[in-house]
Design a protein around this nucleic acid. Structure first.
Length: 803
DNA sequence: GAGTTTGAAACT
DNA sequence: CAGTTTCAAACTC
């Protein structure tokens, strides 16, 4: 194989050798003597470097750069595979590398451009695929390697259709100018190619485009990188070359050669390529507007890197092809998935989301685990790739999806966020609460079963989504103005479908931020400034969230907890305000008389309770004064009369009981629930130890946890009318589908009333509360250890220790 | 749209 | 734990 292929290559190259440029290069080339494949390759590498630099000028037009990159790819391809068969192409490359040494390897790396990986890694790339986990942009360890491989593979594909290269070589210097053809030209050529290669190339083209995107996304070099590039001068010079290639080329080549001689010194920023620092840059870049320029830069960097690796007698790059080939399919598949997300991102996703029921994030089956870091990452379902809507409304609180979640998620799409979530619909969704949708939609789940690639993809998606500013532009989803926001809010009060904030100083990492408080990532519609509440800052978000929760375990619990409107609970109908629905902490209004939305109780559509410290309360939904009058009586009533709750039911009815109990009965004093219970398995809590009627539902202690585990938790935020629906739905769902454990959690919905004697809130709530039908001394609440926030390390089940 | 009011959240 | 400050939503004009 070697011999024939090489001979072919040599033949083709020989033509090239005749050209003045080639001779010039040959003379300059420190690496190899002219006549050989090596020489050609050397030239190739040199030309590549120079050409690349030409197009890679930071100031250059991004598109142009991209094009040039692509162009180079084509150009180079032929060289590598010039005469070899498609099949032999890779082999040849490898062979060449081995036999020809550095030149070949250098060339190969260059060709593969865009790879940030250091040359040393090149050989390892194929074998290291697993570690590549390419799409984990968040991981510092994340290496570009995967990309390298992927890109390489792509090129290989191209290599299989090297017609252009050959053509180029044959034509000689004149044709060489063709190197600078625009992308369109190249594309045109490829498109019109009739042979089998056409398909491959088309695919390649697509991939290239995608690659470009990928590059932009994942390997965005910082501008500093660009400007720091030692080759900058050469780049500038290169620009000249663009106009007058032949003469300029020489200069360029000279420069390049000079730089190459020192080898390593040639690298613009070698250390940065692999360093974590570089990764950080990339991350940052992700947030920033990303331009195609990055592509070029990356390409350039990588090309340089490859050069750096250049070591006589060493064919690093050349080795890659062979190894890569084996993984080619896999890599490509991965890449494509990502591409799908990235490119048409929004539109496709939307479409899919609408049409694809299974894409819903909230679906347990679809849930995915973030990688080993065990961080709960909002992931999209594997299927969803196309369907995924960008990080919209990722609900941090929603960890586990339950059938209920599914139902809810299926609900109407109200906001952009809600759109995002296309839950698997297992049943009819009656929930009208958009917020819940949101929560569900992006619930973060870990799914050990998912492959790393998929996970990575999901992560990417998330980032993309969150980052995709344009995502909703087409739609009028983005009310940036306060007014719109307000309107939205008003509407939302019913649907409360999506949170949008306008934070300026809090970085959306404090409870001031509605989005953050709601456990969702900020999305485009938000007008926030300096927002960190985005998927890309997920870790920070989680950390902050943890901190806040450490201070106040129920910080992320729904502010208003509504009791379900059970058939048995008719008394509340009269008032329109379910006695059981109350603000978790109660309000502290002084001037608004609880008649404006300043009042959280009012805003939540619930009456004030004993927990409230408001003055002059006139809450239309119920005044705390009224509440107190109702107090014991109601309590008694519930306690004794609530057959529906099955207070006396045997164990068989326990689940329902628990749920209803939760809904209607909340421990009077949350403080009873020790914070320590956060993670504790379960604790029996005397419900009304204080003897005070638990009129108010108060926010549930377990809200957050519940939220996390079950989207249901947001029902509390739902307006009463909808809340009722929600309750019904949730009840039915839990009864029917929810496992006992889950049901227990569901009970969390009802909150534990945080009514401490002083009304001052909450004691650390606990992540899950389960009421046990304790008929005798009253009901007991059992706290379940459910993390209020998506568990970082474990899945939901692990966190629901039922005892 | 800008400015004010309000009360929750955060801080001390 | 209380008082103060900060913050962003709600509200008014």
């Amino acid at each position: 194989m070697d011999t024939p292929d090489r001979s072919k290559v040599v033949t083709q190259i020989s033509r090239f050798e005749d050209s003045p440029v080639f001779n010039f290069i040959n003379n300059l080339s420190p690496i190899q003597p002219v006549k050989s494949v090596n020489a050609a390759q050397t030239f190739h590498s040199l030309s590549f470097a120079s050409i690349t630099s030409v197009f890679t000028s930071p100031h250059a037009n991004p598109q142009k750069e991209s094009k040039s990159l692509i162009r180079h790819s084509f150009f180079e391809r032929p060289k590598l595979g010039t005469s070899s068969d498609n099949d032999n192409d890779h082999s040849l490359s490898a062979e060449e590398a081995k036999t020809t040494g550095p030149s070949g390897s250098t060339v190969t790396c260059s060709l593969n451009e865009a790879n940030v990986d250091p040359p040393d890694d090149c050989p390892d790339v194929p074998g290291d695929l697993p570690k590549a986990e390419p799409y984990d942009c968040g991981s510092p360890n994340h290496n570009i390697t995967p990309f390298y491989v992927t890109k390489f593979d792509l090129k290989l594909d191209m290599g299989q259709t090297p017609a252009e290269l050959v053509h180029y070589v044959q034509d000689g210097l004149d044709k060489r100018k063709g190197l600078f053809l625009t992308q369109l030209e190249l594309e045109d050529r490829h498109q019109f190619k009739p042979n089998e290669e056409e398909l491959a190339e088309c695919a390649w083209e697509n991939l290239m485009c995608d690659d470009g995107n990928d590059l932009m996304i994942f390997y965005p070099p910082t501008e500093s990188d660009v400007f720091n590039c030692p080759n900058e001068n050469s780049q500038d010079n290169d620009v000249k070359l663009f106009n007058s290639f032949p003469s300029s080329l020489q200069n360029d080549v000279v420069d390049d050669v000079k730089e190459l001689q020192p080898n390593v010194s040639f690298l613009p920023y070698p250390e940065e390529v692999n360093s974590v620092h570089h990764v950080e840059h990339i991350k940052e870049q992700l947030e920033m507007d990303q331009t195609p320029q990055i592509l070029l830069e990356n390409c350039q960097n990588q090309a340089v890197t490859s050069d750096t690796n250049y070591k006589p007698g060493y064919g690093l790059a050349s080795d890659i092809p062979i190894t890569c080939k084996a993984e080619f399919q896999q890599q490509r598949g991965t890449r494509r998935r990502c591409l799908n997300f990235e490119v048409p991102r929004v539109p496709k996703m939307n479409l899919h989301s609408d049409s694809t029921p299974h894409t819903s994030i909230s679906c347990p089956s679809n849930e995915e685990y973030s990688s080993g870091d065990s961080q709960p990452v909002p992931l999209m379902v594997g299927n969803l790739s196309p369907c995924m809507l960008p990080g919209i409304g990722l609900h941090l609180n929603t960890l586990a999806t339950t059938s209920k979640d599914k139902l809810l998620a299926q609900g109407t799409i109200v906001s952009g966020r809600s759109l995002i979530s296309m839950p698997n619909s297992t049943g009819p969704v009656s929930s009208s609460n958009g917020q819940e949708h949101q929560n569900k939609s992006l619930s973060i789940q870990k799914d050990p079963e998912l492959g790393g690639n998929e996970i990575q993809d999901l992560k990417i998606m998330q980032n993309d989504v969150s980052e995709a500013p344009d995502f909703n532009n087409g739609e009028d989803l983005r009310p940036n103005s306060p007014r719109k926001k307000r309107r939205r809010t008003e509407i939302g009060s019913e649907s409360d479908s999506c949170k949008r904030c306008n934070c300026k100083k809090s970085q959306c990492l404090k409870l001031y931020c509605e989005c953050f408080a709601a456990g969702v990532f900020c999305v485009e519609p938000c007008s926030c400034q300096g927002c960190f509440n985005k998927p890309i800052h997920q870790e920070k978000v989680l950390t902050t969230r943890k901190q806040i929760e450490s201070r106040n375990p129920i910080a992320f619990a729904p502010k208003v907890i509504r009791a379900s409107e059970s058939s048995c609970d008719t008394r509340e109908d009269a008032n329109k305000t379910p006695a059981s629905a109350r603000h978790k902490k109660g309000c502290n209004c002084k001037k608004s008389s609880c008649l404006k939305k300043y009042c959280e109780c009012y805003q939540g559509g619930v009456g004030c309770s004993v927990s409230c410290r408001c003055e002059g309360c006139k809450n239309a939904f119920g005044r705390k004064d009224d509440m107190s009058s109702m107090g014991d009586e109601e309590f008694e009533h519930e306690e004794e009369k609530d057959p529906c709750q099955g207070t006396d039911k045997p164990d068989g009815g326990r689940q329902n009981d628990n749920i209803r109990n939760d809904e209607h009965q909340v421990p009077d004093d949350i403080s009873q629930l020790t914070p320590a219970q956060d993670l504790r398995p379960s604790v029996n809590i005397p419900i009304f130890s204080t003897g005070k009627p638990p009129r108010t539902l108060g926010r549930q202690i377990g809200d957050s946890s519940q939220l996390n585990s079950f989207t249901t938790f947001r029902k509390c935020d739902i307006p009463p009318s909808q809340c009722d629906k929600f309750d019904k739905l949730s009840n039915s769902v839990f009864e029917d589908d929810t496992p006992t454990i889950l049901r227990g959690n569901s009970s969390l919905i009802s909150g534990v009333k945080a009514v401490s004697p002083n009304r001052k809130r909450v004691s650390p709530p606990h992540f899950g509360i389960r009421l046990t039908p304790n008929r005798k001394g009253g009901r007991k609440l059992i706290l379940k250890a459910i993390p209020s926030f998506p568990p970082l390390n474990s899945d939901v089940n692990s966190e629901n220790p039922m005892k």
